[in-house]
Write a protein that binds this DNA or RNA. Structure first.
Lengths: 136, 136
DNA sequence: AAGAGAATGAGAATGATTCTTATTTTTATA
DNA sequence: TATAAAAATAAGAATCATTCTCATTCTCTT
């Protein structure tokens, strides 16, 4: 007899799914990833819950890449790289964001600072290789 | 007799306008600002030329604030602050972005890095005051 | 002055995101 | 356990920033 543990709440599934990936997906990406387990999940539900999580501070938005918002369940301060070729977003966990600047920023501006985002842009390895091939 | 120097090209006006402001305007903001001098300028022209300037590297996009893209004619590396209350974007010219990290980032990721964006978020002075008043 | 090519205006098209509403699921209460 | 109230969801419509289309207007060259 199978367990009667049914997972009715799709909300948890959305958060889990985001927490299990490192691709910094868009809402549509997540919707696609979730469909295996929840074939009837609605795109609106994904959007709705993502903004809820954002408000709750459970996740972060990385802003839009090519006009599409990307999300990250890792809310700890870390550095990102965005490839201008393919739109891939990578974590750069080796680097530490310059926390010293935060106090300095508050001091010189009078603004109360609650967040910091350091993002590099450029061309990722696989796009570099692809560009190379195209020249041949 | 008035000078016969007519400024037919609106393109230059758009770039000049962006260069003369520090508010990091949106396309619509610019369109509004330009209407004094060019009452018949089209919003499509503003958008069209902004993406041209971006491609040419004459201006930078700061990404979207509240779903609306914001632009900056200052392409030199500098730090931004975005107010989550009013959406205002401020320069923090006192701070220098950590250029040392860029080489480190290339080293550890293999990505070719072409740009860097350091952005703080929080509450600006005038929004802090307004919040204060609301409590009274 | 005429023709070719670039720039523009106006409005339609696009597409990501949000909203609405009817339905389903969950929780609270008896 | 039944039942009512509250929360969550699906589906599709609505919104709105941005891009596209195409007819017209400018600009430059000859």
């Amino acid at each position: 007899m199978e367990q009667t543990v049914k997972q009715f709440r799709k909300r948890n599934a959305i958060l889990s799914c985001l927490r299990c990936t490192h691709v910094h997906p868009s809402a549509e990406d997540l919707h696609r990833m979730l469909q295996a387990e929840h074939p009837d999940i609605s795109l609106a539900t994904v959007y709705r819950n993502l903004s809820l999580f954002k408000r709750q501070g459970l996740i972060r938005s990385l802003g839009a890449v090519d006009g599409i918002e990307r999300f990250d369940a890792d809310t700890s301060p870390h550095v990102h790289f965005i490839c201008t070729g393919c739109g891939r977003v990578l974590d750069l966990p080796q680097l530490t964001p310059p926390q010293s600047l935060e106090a300095e920023a508050e001091g010189c501006s009078g603004c109360r600072i609650t967040g910091c985002q350091l993002t590099f842009t450029g061309v990722c390895l696989s796009c570099q290789q692809q560009n190379q091939e195209e020249l041949t």
